[in-house]
């Protein structure tokens, strides 16, 4: 199932690049994004005056890393009617979201570029480059990718001694199994993705008893710990976790940091690596 899915994704990503290539040789001037991840890239790569609208989610500091920029452009809710009003010359959409809108826009002959869900950092880079090309700013994409590569290189390489075992609990709708972007980031930060290890729980909820019996070192909660309510946080109140106390490290990582491709992934790996280091430190002097 998984290889098939991956193959499909790669194929779709490739076709997206192709379509984007045809979409516009010159620079797009009225860009509308109807997908949160596309918002991130558009606001970072296009000229501000050429961005007609992004999604309303992009203005939410909890969900988006570009909420300040998003406040300066128009917003839409992924509805075809809104999109048409901007008379866009390029529309960016997600592969799995707002399907009816995309279908409608395609029927009306609008230039739509669909973004897949990258599974590895290489796919992330590829997507950044293809979006930058479609926007007519190939050089900015190259810059962004280079900057990310530099930042990753600048991070202290994870010590080879021992990779702490991490569980991602209650992720918000993305995959954490082996071969997923989350998995790549965990590995890059010097962690072992414990969920992927036993082949179960490729996504979704991992039972607390698995976490405890498998002796996880690090629990990653996919939530904004401060002001955004999420049921994912509920588990932190569980007495079993509280009684484990010092034996387990907990990291609350807002989903905006690792749901979409972009430079914020560097920050994610940094935080993961720091958490891994805390675990190692405790192990060294208990």
């Amino acid at each position: 199932m998984r290889p098939f899915l991956l193959a499909l994704l790669t194929l779709l990503a490739a076709s997206a690049c192709l379509r984007a290539g045809n979409a516009d040789a010159a620079q797009a001037r009225r860009i509308v994004s109807i997908n949160l991840c596309a918002d991130e890239l558009v606001l970072r790569l296009a000229d501000r005056q050429h961005v007609a609208a992004v999604t309303w989610l992009a203005r939410d500091p909890a969900a988006s890393t570009v909420w300040e920029e998003a406040a300066q452009v128009g917003i839409n809710h992924g509805l075809a009617e809104e999109v048409l009003l901007y008379r866009p010359d390029l529309i960016l959409a997600g592969q799995y979201t707002t399907r009816t809108t995309v279908a409608f826009l395609r029927r009306t002959g609008m230039p739509v570029m669909e973004l897949g869900v990258p599974q590895t950092l290489e796919e992330v880079y590829a997507q950044i480059l293809s979006v930058a090309t479609a926007l007519g700013h190939e050089e900015r994409g190259e810059e962004m990718v280079a900057a990310m590569e530099d930042s990753f290189a600048a991070l202290a390489p994870p010590p080879a001694e021992w990779r702490p075992r991490a569980f991602v609990l209650r992720p918000n709708g993305f995959t954490v199994g082996p071969g997923s972007l989350v998995d790549s980031l965990l590995v890059k930060a010097g962690l072992t993705n414990a969920a992927g290890e036993n082949g179960l729980f490729l996504y979704g909820q991992i039972p607390l008893e698995t976490v405890i019996l498998e002796q996880a070192d690090l629990l990653i909660i996919d939530a904004d710990a401060r002001d955004h309510p999420a049921l994912a946080m509920e588990v932190l109140h569980h007495p079993a976790l509280q009684r484990l106390g010092e034996r387990i490290e907990i990291l609350a990582l807002p989903s905006r940091l690792w749901t979409c491709p972009g430079p914020m992934l560097v920050e994610t790996v940094k935080q993961l690596a720091e958490a891994a280091e805390r675990v190692r430190a405790r192990r060294r002097n208990p």
């Binding site: 909890a62 209650r170 607390l208 955004h228 309510p229 999420a230 049921l231 994912a232 007495p239 989903s255």
Partner: peptide, 24 residues
Amino acid sequence: SPNPYAATEIVFWLMGSLADRSLD
């Protein structure tokens, strides 16, 4: 819902589950 993922969470919660409840 302020959080795009909250809706999913609550829909799943409403379906009912006994997982990871505590003695509390």
